[in-house]
């Protein structure tokens, strides 16, 4: 069947309510919707400081139909560990505990707690929805911000000068049972990974690329397209790693040029042709690295 009837793959339950406070076109609520559709009602969400702190709604509201614990920026993995322990000790092993953090809370301030929990192989799902900067505070760079990007702390005269941290490799290096990337632009792939993650015990890590119209500077309706481009041009390959050693691509990509993606976003407006070549080379090099990881997987 050439036309994928995706509705047959997407659970109907809706655990996110409208009226949430995400910007128009935001990928983050979409990511949450999709993930919760698969995880279901028996889920407890841990939310450190991030865009979702706002999206979830102010007191006394909630945009989720599952319990949600807001916590301090760097603590998602630790709080999730605590909740998991509490559930286990009271005999509830069905409920999924999900930490849901942005890139700042994962790549930067929350990395220690995440590393600790992953090393202990805490039984929870950690989702990083990555919009590639501190968006909630107004677009400041994080270690997930790609090279060359403008942010309010990396002005155009001196844009982000380092490469995006390779969080997937970091998590794989913890030898957790499951680590994967996903993107809201590919719901079926994302749901499949959540389904798989849900069935595994131990620390599971899902890195979801979540395009951000105001932060990346593109128009609202382009959100899905932007994620699609990032996957197809191999800036954000969709893959999974089992037990830290079995690497696998989950989606064929065309290896499109990065240029249309870069040019479509205002945050890269200042980049030169040489910069474009540099980014392309970098993407190619990382792709080759990943191909080697896949090829050498047992």
């Amino acid at each position: 069947m050439s036309q994928v009837m995706i509705k047959e793959l997407v659970p109907r339950r809706e655990l996110v309510d409208p009226g949430h406070l995400a910007c128009p076109g935001c990928g983050a609520p979409l990511a949450m919707r999709l993930v919760l559709k698969e995880l279901g009602e028996k889920t407890i969400v841990v939310l450190p400081a991030c865009c979702w702190s706002i999206i979830a709604g102010p007191y006394p509201q909630s945009s989720l139909h599952v319990p949600l614990y807001h916590t301090a920026f760097e603590t998602a993995a630790a709080v999730a560990s605590g909740i998991r322990a509490a559930l286990d000790v009271r005999g509830d092993t069905d409920t999924t505990v999900m930490a849901w953090a942005g890139d700042g809370g994962t790549f930067d301030i929350g990395l220690q707690a995440l590393s600790g929990a992953a090393e202990r192989n805490e039984d929870f799902l950690y989702v990083c929805y990555d919009n590639e900067a501190y968006m909630n505070t107004g677009i400041q760079r994080s270690s997930a911000t790609p090279w060359g990007a403008w942010t309010t702390t990396t002005p155009r005269s001196q844009p982000q000068g380092t490469k995006k941290k390779d969080i997937l490799s970091i998590m794989a290096a913890h030898r957790i049972p499951y680590a994967a990337t996903a993107c809201v632009s590919y719901p079926a792939d994302l749901l499949e990974k959540v389904r798989k993650a849900k069935s595994i015990r131990g620390t599971r890590f899902l890195h979801i690329l979540s395009p951000c119209p105001p932060g990346w500077k593109f128009s609202d309706e382009q959100s899905i397209e932007m994620g699609r481009k990032a996957v197809q041009n191999r800036i954000f390959p969709l893959m999974e790693v089992e037990d830290g050693i079995r690497w696998r691509f989950t989606m064929e990509t065309d290896g499109d040029r990065v240029e249309p993606y870069i040019k479509a976003q205002g945050r890269f407006r200042h980049l030169t042709d040489e910069d474009m070549v540099r980014i392309q080379d970098e993407v190619n090099a990382r792709w080759e690295y990943l191909e080697r990881m896949v090829a050498s997987s047992p």
Binding site: I44, V46, Y69, T71, A72, T75, A78, V79, A80, S81, G82, I83, A85, A86, L87, R90, A113
Partner: peptide, 9 residues
């Protein structure tokens, strides 16, 4: 942080 989570649960 873990204590907060466990206690909240």
């Amino acid at each position: 942080a873990a204590c907060c989570g466990a206690s909240a649960a």
